[in-house]
Amino acid sequence: MKKRIIAITITGVCGLLACHCKTAQEQGPVKLSPPPQKPVVVRKQNNYHEHIDQMTFVSYLDDGDYFQILAKKADSTFVFINETDTTKNLNRGDQIEVAWKDGQVAVPGDNDAEMPARLLFSIKKTADGPVTSFRTTYGKKLRYTWSTDEEFTTSYLNKVYQLTEYYLTQTKNPLLQLAIKKREELTYSIESAERNGQHYRVIGIAPIGPNGSNIVQWLYIGEENGRIYEHDLPEDKLVAFD
């Protein structure tokens, strides 16, 4: 099966399993230009004081009707309408200070219907998270390949890249820990699979050594919830990560 490859640091090296591949003209998680702002129609802004709180950044959510930010505080998850952070330079796990007011936004295509929303006014990073620290200490881009049978958008490939990178910041796999410590090149493959009636993206991570690369960790990413699962090979079961 032919493979596409993102050759990040050293060009001209093909991907996993000695597959035929071709090189894409892009590097790392691709820096996307901010898309045109989606129209946010604020019907009401409640006359409450502005909320300010410390949270942990999770991700940008740009696939819906509004640009949004997902953040966590303890066991609670918060979604904010985002017209503020257009640079989108935050990484998962970064500590942030957010300020917002409760309000409402229009439901697109539903006449004058409204829904409650947290309207973000400001956001700033207060401390680096594990991904930001990993990029500083490891200092290399990950390579990745995928089957030519699959069609992925650049934004989706970036999403998988960020999830894989986040996993590597906290992996307990000793072979991956050693490869990261020695700053060896890492690569991963992207496949699709169905397991127990659920659809997953399957990520196979491998250090690249002098004799090639062998996958040492399989990850399953739930297509519906985006959650990461480690594949326990001896038990043939999925173990939720984080």
Score class of each variant (00 low, 15 high):
79 V>G: 00
178 L>D: 12
221 I>A: 07
114 E>I: 12
39 P>A: 01
228 I>F: 02
75 D>K: 15
57 F>E: 12
213 S>C: 00
96 I>G: 07
161 Y>P: 09
139 G>S: 04
138 Y>I: 04
7 A>W: 03
95 Q>D: 03
146 W>Q: 07
226 G>R: 07
119 L>H: 11
180 I>V: 11
85 D>S: 03
18 A>R: 11
92 R>V: 10
172 K>E: 12
38 K>C: 05
29 P>C: 06
11 T>Q: 03
117 A>P: 02
195 R>E: 08
86 T>V: 14
55 M>K: 13
45 Q>T: 14
233 L>C: 01
14 C>T: 01
123 I>A: 06
14 C>L: 01
12 G>E: 06
179 A>H: 07
36 P>Q: 14
193 A>C: 06
8 I>Y: 11
86 T>G: 03
70 L>T: 03
15 G>R: 08
16 L>Y: 03
12 G>Y: 03
91 N>F: 15
81 I>P: 01
206 A>Y: 09
65 D>Y: 10
192 S>I: 05
227 R>P: 00
41 V>K: 12
43 R>E: 05
240 A>Y: 06
60 Y>E: 04
76 S>I: 12
5 I>N: 03
138 Y>Q: 05
6 I>V: 15
191 E>C: 00
31 K>Q: 08
4 R>A: 00
216 V>C: 09
98 V>N: 06
196 N>W: 09
217 Q>G: 05
90 L>C: 06
1 M>N: 04
67 F>K: 14
241 F>I: 06
197 G>S: 10
203 I>D: 11
37 Q>T: 11
12 G>K: 01
160 V>F: 08
88 K>G: 01
52 I>E: 15
98 V>T: 09
133 S>V: 15
48 Y>L: 14
147 S>H: 10
146 W>V: 01
112 D>N: 11
198 Q>T: 10
53 D>N: 11
153 T>P: 03
63 D>T: 15
206 A>K: 12
172 K>Y: 02
42 V>K: 14
218 W>N: 13
18 A>V: 05
28 G>F: 07
166 Y>I: 02
102 D>V: 04
199 H>M: 09
23 T>V: 07
122 S>K: 07
31 K>F: 02
123 I>N: 06
130 P>V: 00
68 Q>F: 00
99 A>R: 15
234 P>Y: 00
24 A>S: 10
122 S>H: 11
152 F>A: 08
199 H>N: 15
68 Q>W: 00
219 L>D: 02
183 R>F: 00
150 E>V: 03
46 N>S: 06
72 K>F: 05
237 K>H: 04
48 Y>I: 09
60 Y>S: 05
19 C>W: 04
194 E>D: 04
44 K>D: 06
52 I>H: 13
232 D>V: 11
27 Q>R: 11
46 N>E: 12
86 T>M: 10
239 V>A: 04
171 T>M: 06
65 D>H: 14
158 N>K: 03
167 Y>D: 05
33 S>K: 15
